[in-house]
Amino acid sequence: MAWDLSVDLIQATVQLEQPLADGSRTVGTGFLIEDPTPDGRPRTILVTAAHVFDRMPSVSAKIGYRVQSKEGVWRYDPRTLKIRDGDHPLWIKHPSRDVAAIVVEAPPEFAKAAIPLAWLAQDDTFNKYSLGPGDEMMALGFPRGLSANTAGFPILRSGRVASYPLAPASVFPTFLMDFSVFPGNSGGPVFMAEGARRRPGSTESQEVQFVAGMLTQQVELSGERLEIGIVTHAKYIREAVALLDKPSGPPLIQAAPAKLPSTAAAQDVVAVQAVAAPGFNR
């Protein structure tokens, strides 16, 4: 494989958290995208589910950067991320979907981990690779505030596409994945990284690596979690990022829920004491 999307996305994915007055904390997942400004200046953008920021009442949150020593040892190095100026949100929200984007000043060594915007799926990506129900995708996140290790890396899990059809995104803005969703998963990238998939109408194989979307909700019925995640198409991440370059700024409109019998956004509130570094048992 020429490149490994799984490793690249692990490095670009960060935990977002804010302690609350009752000793619990709001936790979510985000990932960094490299998208230069219209005049070509480098720019790093954090994307996450809009409801993650909506449920953080204070002006600042923590973004879980990681740094590597000269000896190659990783350590968790969270930094303060200002998300409000008084009551005014500093992030932009997609006008119809649960997606938010904010420009961040990441440490230079971490800004390099941001993935190119071009890695996000386009409108025709699913049809191009003949993807559909049963195909396996992967997801990164911090379920219930847990990380993979003390360095703060996200946990990688997988699930199968559980709905049909997947495209066009303008008609089907979300799709389902057979995947248990927990508080802390919201905003994490969902992606496909297959090293060898047969080309449609051919005996030849091809690499299939792209970010399919963002985990934003879970499916519930009568208060029961059905262990099904709702993924918002990457198209709407692209649109949210594009709003950053609108001169007057985007309208701050609450994202509409997916049209399913019963859904719920992950609550993203973890009832444990906030600590300075993520461990296995946060």
Rank of each mutant, 00 (worst) to 15 (best):
A2T: 11
L5K: 00
S6H: 03
V7G: 05
I10M: 08
Q11R: 15
Q11I: 02
T13P: 04
V14S: 07
L20N: 10
A21Y: 04
G30H: 03
F31Q: 08
L32T: 06
I33A: 09
D35H: 13
P38G: 12
P42C: 07
R43P: 01
I45Y: 05
H51Q: 03
M56A: 07
P57L: 11
S58G: 11
Y65I: 09
R66E: 06
V67G: 02
Q68M: 15
G72S: 02
W74N: 00
R75F: 12
D77N: 12
P78Y: 05
T80W: 02
D85M: 05
D98S: 08
A100H: 01
I102P: 04
I102N: 02
V104T: 06
A106P: 04
A114T: 07
I115Y: 01
I115L: 13
P116K: 07
P116H: 06
W119M: 07
A121P: 03
L131C: 09
P133R: 10
F142M: 05
F142T: 12
L146M: 10
A148P: 05
A151Q: 10
L156K: 15
R157I: 10
L176Y: 02
F179A: 00
V181M: 01
V181L: 02
P183Y: 03
G188T: 03
R197T: 06
R197Y: 06
G201D: 02
T203R: 15
S205G: 07
F210N: 02
V211Q: 00
A212D: 02
G213Y: 01
T216N: 01
T216W: 05
Q218R: 15
L226T: 13
I228L: 15
V231Y: 05
H233Y: 00
H233S: 08
H233A: 09
H233E: 02
A234W: 06
K235S: 01
V241Y: 03
L243N: 05
P251W: 08
I253W: 00
A255F: 04
A255K: 05
A256N: 04
P261Q: 11
Q267D: 14
Q273E: 14
A274R: 11
A274E: 14
A274Q: 04
V275F: 09
A276D: 14
A277V: 12
N281F: 13
R282D: 11
